[in-house]
Structure formats: C-alpha cells, structure tokens
Design a binder for these strands. Structure first.
Lengths: 216, 216
DNA sequence: CCTACCGATCGGTAGG
DNA sequence: CCTACCGATCGGTAGG
C-alpha cells in the first residue's frame, strides 16, 4: 500500500514533465523498479492512474491553499497567501501536489472532461477570493481570476531558479494584480514590496461566495 | 510548392492542438489526402517539419506585431497594440502564425533547444516595449514581461469564445498590467475601458533597448 | 511481481 | 505520390 504511493509520485513527476501521451507505462515501471506488465498489479489502466493522480493532487492543493489563507481576513492578504502557496505547490511540490493540472493536450477527450470538471471545482477557491477584492469597477473579475490562475498553474514553465525566491515572485505578481477600487484607494504602488508579511488586518468577512460559471 | 504550404498549415494545427508527440505523421498525411509514407516526399522528418513550422510562425508573428505597433509612439499605446495583435495571432491565426510556441513538453530535447533559442529572440520585441514603460520602481520588468508573455502565448488554453471579444480581452489585460510610475501618475483605473482606441499620443522615443537576459 | 506475448501504432524507407 | 514493409514502441493481458 505504501508501494502504491511511490508509484503515484513517480508517475506524477513524469506526467508533469512530458505530458500524458509522451509518458509511457514502461518508463514509470522502470523507475519503480519493475517490469512494465507488473505495474498492472497496482493500477487498472494508464487513464485511471492519471485521473487518480490528478484528483489527489487537486485535493491536496485545495487543503494547502485553504490552510495558508485561514489566518488572514483582509482580501488582499488572503490573495497573497493563496498565491504564495500555489507557487510553492507548483514549484516545490510535496509528494503528490504536482503541476499536472495543465497540459491536457495529449489526454484522451473523455478523460479530459473529467479532469476539467475537477479543476473547475478547485478554482472556486480563487473565485471567492477574487470576488472579495475591492477592485476598480472597470475590471472584469472573471478575466482577472482566469489570468491569475493561468500564471500560477503554469509557473513551472516560466519560473527559473535563481534571481528571485518563490515568495518574491509571488509578491511581484501581487504588485501587478493589485488594484484598489475607487472606494478604498489607500497606500499602494512603489513601496518595493518583496517580503510577504501579513499586513493590514481589516474586518471584511471571508467571502460572499457568489454564483458565476460563464466562460470568457 | 503550394502543396507544401498546405501541409505545413495542416501540421501546424495538429501540433498546436495535441502537441508534438501526440500528433502522428499518418494523421497529418491523411488530412492532406495522402498516405503516411508519401509525406516524406515533402518533408525530411517529423522533427524538421516541427522546427520549420515553428520558425515560420514566429517570423510571421514578429512581422505582424511590429506592424501593429508601428503607428504608436506612446509606451502604453505600443504595449496595447502589441498585446491585441498577439491575442489575434493566438486566437485567430492566419495560416502559419499558430500558437505552437508553447507546449514543448513532448518535444525531443535537442529540438527543444533550437525552438527556445528562436522564441527568446522573438520575445526581445516585448522586452523593448516593457523597458520603455513608466512603471513604478518596485516592479520588476523581467517578471512583468515573462508573466505578460505567458498569458498572451497561452491564450488558446484559457480563452473561450463568447462573452468578450479579443479586443476587449486585450483591454482587460492592459487594465491589469497598467501601472504608472511615481513621475506620471495620471488618469487611470476605473474608467471602464473596454475599447482599444489609440489614445494619448505622447512624445517618448520608441524604446531604450537595454540588455538583460537573466532568468527569473 | 516476472515472462512472454497480443494487436495496434509509431516514424521512416525502398522501390516503383 | 502509393504499396508494402522495417524495427521500435505502445498499453495491456495471461499464466504463473
């Protein structure tokens, strides 16, 4: 049973790096120290394996993001905590929380449908955060959320080790995405914020949790 | 010779949709109305085909973006023109300017090296634009450019037909990425800008064209 | 967990 | 441009 966890982690890494189609059952098996056919003692099929990894990764990610957000109540602080944690997950993944929620291009159509449904569900976390932000009225919250999530989810394809830490990158993203509405245009902008410390503890309840599921 | 162009376009579409590995020579051939083996009268190898498509697409994209920027001199107007054109290229590609500059996951390592070099060269266009923007001092221009390009280049994976037009989406991106430096904090923000009309014709020379090629 | 194998599909070639 | 084929690799199975 612990062996199975090993296999899932090995497969997750390969799927994340090469995509569904370009990752072979035999390669997964080899890294697990067994023959290709033997893998089927542990899994039912390649498709089922992929779906299971994806589900578990998203569940783990949801738990981590919610935990990271929990101590904060101010909308921007919640967003920053969520972004920092998402970057951490994407770039320095613990066991199964790997960046496989992208790159569905080579996944069979029927499987893709299942994955997308699960992913949409996960992203409601960010819908709630974004809906709670005091953004300028001209800014479309759906586009805002989609763009932000795209950046976070594909972090492994654009982030290069070196220059900046994950926390600094998260702060930079926040600097770009931070726009105050006309009501509360407080201190912002060129303060050179690179440290992610939980500032401004305002009141504001967690999130209104609205309904909206239309595509862009 | 015109037959060859047809083949390149067919292959480009398939590569863009399924990725390198998941696109088979036989599928390309079938759509071109011939047998798999016959394709080799027109191409040298699958790898060579992919590289040629990629090169031509980037060349065409560079030409289109430069042309779209040409009439503008104001930094933000230039950025908006470039973004709008990039979205147009990614979402409504004319012949060969297809969104294949991503999804290198299943591409052989040696080929990937060639592609990345070419892509980096293309992206210098945006480096010049971004370097000319009057951004707040705390904002890292390299991160800024990388994030913006990621969004534009992966537009086909997050844009869904309907609600908003390409131009409106481009305007929304600009609304998020627009931050004035401390020197020229003029009118901005909640004006509900959804139309992309070339406003503010300032002076400011095209671009300083600095040097910087470090990874994040 | 292995051996041995299945049918299918892959990129590519020869010979016309 | 086709037919016919190559060796390699694929996901998956049977039988142990």
């Amino acid at each position: 049973m612990e062996r199975r966890q090993e296999i899932l982690e090995i497969a997750a890494k390969l799927f994340a790096e090469y995509g569904y189609k370009a990752t072979s059952i035999r390669e997964i098996a080899e890294r697990a120290g067994m023959m290709g056919g033997s893998l089927y003692y542990h899994i039912r099929s390649k498709e089922a394996l992929f779906i299971e990894i994806h589900d578990r990764a998203l569940d783990a990610a949801a738990r981590r993001v919610r935990t990271a957000m929990a101590p904060h109540t101010a909308p921007w602080a919640r967003l920053e905590a969520a972004c920092t944690e998402m970057l951490e997950i994407q770039l320095n993944p613990g066991s199964l929380t790997l960046p496989i929620m992208n790159n569905f291009r080579s996944v069979p159509e029927e499987v893709k449908t299942i994955l997308v449904r699960k992913r949409d569900q996960f992203e409601t976390i960010f819908r709630d955060i974004v809906d709670a932000l005091p953004l300028p009225p001209g800014m479309d919250r759906q586009i805002y959320r989609i763009l932000l999530l795209r950046l976070l989810n594909t972090a492994d394809t654009w982030y290069h080790e070196g220059r900046m830490s994950r926390t600094e990158i998260a702060a930079q993203i926040l600097t770009i995405f931070r726009h105050e509405g006309p009501a509360a245009t407080g201190a912002r902008g060129s303060k050179g914020r690179t440290k992610s410390t939980p500032k401004e503890k305002e009141e504001k309840p967690p999130a209104p949790a609205r309904k909206r599921r239309v595509a862009a």
